[in-house]
């Protein structure tokens, strides 16, 4: 093989490099996997022993030369003749798409995280409940008008713990209180998020299925002022530190005193001069402690419950509750 001729040829052909494409073709011809240099090396195995050193050197020299020529040419192209490929940086980035978490579970996560940071433990309790957990244990007697606000779906399933009674779909997350207190002694600081069901006709603000979050704190010497303080702290963290809120008396069978909490519409950037109800709360009624067999007078505690949909609607300006369950991807992808 005439190596000096090969070198001449390499120099000659290097003159023809005009752009990145021809430069790459040139590189492949000499230095590619099946290029000339590789061929020379491959021929080594069949070469006579005394020729091997010379052939090897020649191949290396050729490689060095070609690399040098390419480098020279590249410098030139950078400065003068050849334009490098332009990247259009305004084209969209390429990556796999990210999915979107539903705004309801995001809201639950957000609220749960506030309370967990304040020391609460999250427990999930069943949706299919007994009358005892949903009503009686919460001081809501049968055939009492206080049941009106807790209209309930009943199931074709028997309650094995109560003769002749049927299981139901919980109408609030408060049965979590009874379940957990039945099994555990105070101190307890627990939140219970989950789905609840009420036979409400569906419209922009009602749904027969929605989500709630129940919270309760039971210990010796828990006070109403603690409830006010905790919920004030929650509202500041969830709605922002300038939130304006008020506690007003209300009635729930399972708390005494009971209150509802409103926040000012102005706080949410709404122009209307109005208070918006966000949650119900109160000091746990002694009858609830009695139902879970806590010693009389030993513990006090508070409980609160809020609607997740309502919180999400207020925070994100969603006007129709049905949007949550329609799952239009245009809605899902906004959050």
């Amino acid at each position: 093989m005439d190596f000096s001729q090969l070198q001449q040829q390499a120099k000659q052909e290097a003159q023809d490099i005009t752009d990145t494409k021809s430069r790459e073709e040139y590189r492949l011809k000499y230095l590619g996997k099946k290029g000339i240099v590789a061929e020379i090396f491959a021929s080594l195995s069949s070469a006579a022993l005394h020729e091997k050193a010379a052939i090897g050197k020649a191949a290396n020299d050729l490689r060095t030369l070609v690399n040098h020529l390419i480098e020279e040419k590249s410098k030139k192209t950078a400065s003068t003749s050849i334009k490098p490929e332009q990247v259009d940086i305004s084209l969209p980035g390429t990556s796999s798409v990210l999915g979107h978490q539903h705004i309801l579970t995001q809201t639950i996560d957000e609220i749960v995280s506030v309370f967990e940071k304040l020391g609460f433990v999250t427990v999930e309790t069943p949706e299919i409940e007994t009358e005892f957990h949903n009503f009686t244990g919460l001081n809501i007697p049968l055939d009492h008008p206080s049941r009106d606000s807790f209209d309930t779906f009943y199931l074709d399933q028997q309650d094995r713990s109560a003769q002749g009674r049927r299981l139901l779909l919980r109408s609030h997350t408060s049965p979590g209180q009874v379940r957990i207190m039945k099994e555990h002694k105070p101190p307890l600081a627990v939140i219970v998020p989950g789905r609840v069901y009420r036979p409400d006709a569906v419209d922009a603000s009602h749904s027969f299925m929605f989500h709630q979050l129940e919270g309760f704190l039971v210990d010796e010497k828990v006070k109403f002022s603690d409830l006010k303080g905790l919920l004030t702290e929650f509202c500041r963290r969830f709605f922002g530190k300038d939130v304006k809120m008020r506690f007003r008396p209300h009635f729930f069978p399972f708390t005494e005193p009971s209150a509802e909490v409103d926040i000012s519409a102005g706080t949410l950037g709404l122009a209307r001069k109005k208070w918006l109800e966000i949650l119900g709360c109160g000091m746990i009624h002694p009858n609830v402690f009695k139902a879970v067999s806590y010693p009389s007078g030993k513990y006090t505690g508070f409980a609160f419950g809020m609607g997740i949909e309502r919180m999400a609607m207020l925070k994100h300006g969603i006007k129709d509750i049905r949007l949550f369950y329609e799952n239009d991807v245009r809605f899902l992808k906004q959050f």
């Binding site: 002694k185 101190p187 307890l188 828990v222 006070k223 603690d226 409830l227 905790l230 004030t232």
Partner: peptide
């Protein structure tokens, strides 16, 4: 209720 005091509860180690 707005005239009642506000405090932060002591949340102790839980039994749960």
């Amino acid at each position: 209720f707005d005239h009642l005091p506000t405090s932060l509860p002591q949340i102790k180690a839980k039994n749960l």
